[in-house]
């Protein structure tokens, strides 16, 4: 059997992922994260915080919660259930940083935690900053 035939053959024995079910779950769970953050945000506004600080504090609380859940070992089990709905928001970003930091704790302060904390989040930061930069240039060029 040549390589092309083999690739065709194994397709038959490769289980299909439940893409639709997972996407639906992510849609719902992502929405729930959004609802929870809105509730927190509204509570902050009730306590007479201004819009900017209410947004920041809401994000801080989400980051705190997901890092805490990662630390006590629950978050990865939640991802199994709720899929990417809790990975795409800032909760997932905090989770990737905390899990990397925990993982490299024993490898030393510099060579471990220092070098590996942004192992997963690094790409999000780099490409986030690069795309922000490009968008900023487009804005300046076209809209002044």
């Amino acid at each position: 059997m040549n390589k092309a035939d083999y690739k065709k053959m194994i397709k038959k024995y490769t289980p299909k992922e439940d893409v639709l079910k997972n996407a639906l779950m992510a849609f719902v769970s992502g929405g729930v994260v959004g609802v929870i953050s809105t509730i927190i945000y509204v509570i902050f506004l009730r306590f007479e915080f201004d819009v900017t600080s209410a947004t920041s504090y809401t994000l801080v609380i989400l980051i705190l919660l997901s890092s805490l859940l990662t630390g006590i070992g629950c978050f990865d089990k939640l991802v199994e259930k709720f899929k990417c709905g809790i990975i795409i928001p800032i909760t997932g970003f905090a989770h990737s940083i905390t899990s990397s930091a925990i993982d490299s704790k024993k490898d030393g302060m510099i060579t471990g935690i220092g070098a590996s904390t942004f192992k997963l989040a690094g790409s999000v930061l780099l490409y986030g900053i690069v795309s922000a930069f490009i968008l900023a240039i487009i804005k300046v060029v076209f809209y002044g």
């Binding site: 990865d76 991802v79 989770h95 990737s96 905390t98 899990s99 192992k119």
Partner: peptide, 17 residues
Amino acid sequence: ERQFRYPIEYGAPKAKR
């Protein structure tokens, strides 16, 4: 897991295969 995939606590959904 640490060596070949993700950090232990990182929740990456696993494929059925």
